[in-house]
Design a protein around this nucleic acid. Sequence first.
DNA 1: AATAAGTCCAACCGCAAAGTC
DNA 2: AGACTTTGCGGTTGGACTTAT
Length: 230
Amino acid sequence: MGRSPCCEKAHVNKGAWTKEEDQRLIAYIKAHGEGCWRSLPKAAGLLRCGKSCRLRWINYLRPDLKRGNFTEEEDELIIKLHGFLGNKWSLIAGQLPGRTDNEIKNYWNTHIKRKLISRGLDTKTHRPLTGDTQLNTSTQPQLVTMTTDVASKPLTDLVDDGHSSGISIDEDRCLDLNLDLSISLPYTSSKPSTSSEVLMPLTAAEAGTPTSVPPYTNHLLMLPFGVPKQ
DNA sequence: AATAAGTCCAACCGCAAAGTC
DNA sequence: AGACTTTGCGGTTGGACTTAT
């Protein structure tokens, strides 16, 4: 059988976008908003598939994107989030205002991997590369609080009762973890610009109060890294 | 100056989840 | 309930650019 193609490939452009295509896409979304990506190209007069339009908009044309180099704070935040979430780039991007999953993924592969290696850490587990495979929390980097098999599970699995999913989370190692997921309102531009402000530790009571969140984020994560256990 | 090697990143692809009928 | 459609995600690639020789 095989899958049906996402679009009529014989009649679509591929490769780099031209300025004219960008302008058409921007103008269309400004006028009509983000709607049905599948029908957007035709409506906007673009010879592109919907997926391509979506990617171009999200990764490059969105007005709220932050261009330029990653800061040291962003580096560290990405490392911490990756230690917890694994390759969940969209969720990591949700904690970095103005950054896209694609951008972070690229940055991880080109910069941060090397950074971790230079620190003698495994880029997947964030544990020391040398020696034993036994978990020894006293020697682990603080950023890793969950086993990687847990980190690789869908987040929804992590926030159910912890039993039906078959995942058992070591409570001792996760006591300082406050993971709250909720549907969030769209991002507004009047928000903190630094990652440390975005990821402020919240109390349980505070966590119940909706706060502004990064764009295109369905899940609001509150991960109070660095907060000492009581 | 030429070119080989390395780096970066935009864009594509396939898959899975979510939504619709 | 299940088939089909649409959207979103993560992995990968190709080409442009930069640096080293």
